[in-house]
């Protein structure tokens, strides 16, 4: 008996070092029912997040205090199954979007674009708290902001389309990341200097895992603000900007 206790405490000790599903025991050769169901629940959360919808009404309500126009847009992917199989469609805005965006064409420093990505849940939960910190900081720094754009069935590159039409120096897209078993509510933020259609990942900078249990919004906002400041000052984004930021480069 004491041997058993001894063993259990050793396993408990091992479990402290990782969130991996170790020391789960077995019944025969199989995973015991409790752990099996915990796993299923985590997967269910992830699946539900993939099929969750952007809560446009709630987001409008939360974001209107910033006093910016809010434009609702859609990508060329019409429904979720198509979105999942045709990333090319999720990267382009649909034909109506051009008409909606044209009147707002201006000369902005930053366009903020908000898209569901692979987890609308992440956007519904994290967007407003993040922008509550970020938008006042932009105002203080005297950056001019384009209207906020909410996009359904969007992928990262769609932000560059929108930023380009609005004529913004920089596009910042907030987007739901692919849900994992440990988190289904992670938001990512990507920024591109001089956004235009056809750019790829190496032209962007990314801040990932924004969520209360991951990178909390105030820290995320600091990072995003720093990168945007550097990007606008040095007139570039992507690999070069990231490298220098790592070395705490100041011009």
């Amino acid at each position: 008996m004491s041997d058993e206790l001894d063993k259990r405490s050793l396993w408990d000790k091992l479990k402290e070092y990782t969130s991996a599903r170790i020391a789960i025991g077995r019944t025969g050769n199989s995973i015991p029912v409790q752990n099996s169901l915990e796993f299923k629940l985590a997967h269910a959360h992830a699946r539900d997040a993939v099929y969750s919808k952007l809560d446009v009404e709630k987001l409008h309500h939360e974001l209107e205090k910033h006093g910016l126009p809010i434009i609702n847009l859609k990508s060329k992917a019409d429904y979720r199954e198509q979105y999942l199989q045709r990333p090319d469609l999720g990267r382009k805005i649909d034909d109506d979007a051009y008409k909606l965006l044209e009147p707002h064409k201006g000369n902005y420093d930053i366009a903020i674009i908000i898209a569901d990505g692979l987890s609308a849940t992440a956007i519904n939960q994290n967007t407003s708290p993040l922008l509550d910190v970020l938008i006042p900081a932009f105002a203080l720094a005297k950056y001019s902001l384009a209207p906020l754009c909410l996009i359904e069935q969007g992928r990262v590159a769609i932000g560059d389309d929108v930023g380009s039409i609005l004529n913004a120096k920089l596009s910042l897209i907030l987007i739901g990341e692919r849900p994992g078993l440990s988190a289904a509510d992670s938001m990512g933020a990507y920024l591109t200097y001089l956004p235009k259609p056809g750019l790829t990942d190496e032209s962007r900078n990314c801040i990932s895992n924004i969520r209360p249990q991951g990178l909390p919004v105030h820290l995320a906002a600091e990072k995003i603000f720093y990168l945007i400041q550097q990007s606008l000052r040095r007139q570039l984004s992507g690999v070069q900007l990231k490298d220098d930021a790592d070395e705490k480069y100041f011009p």
């Binding site: 990782t18 969130s19 991996a20 599903r21 170790i22 789960i24 077995r26 050769n29 199989s30 995973i31 752990n35 796993f39 985590a42 997967h43 692919r178 994992g180 078993l181 440990s182």
Partner: peptide, 20 residues
């Protein structure tokens, strides 16, 4: 461990699956 890769965020086969 338990099919859940906590770094790569995907699901594969567990130690138990090999036993099976």
């Amino acid at each position: 461990p338990g099919s859940d890769d906590i770094m790569l965020n995907y699901q594969s086969t567990s130690f138990h699956d090999a036993l099976y």
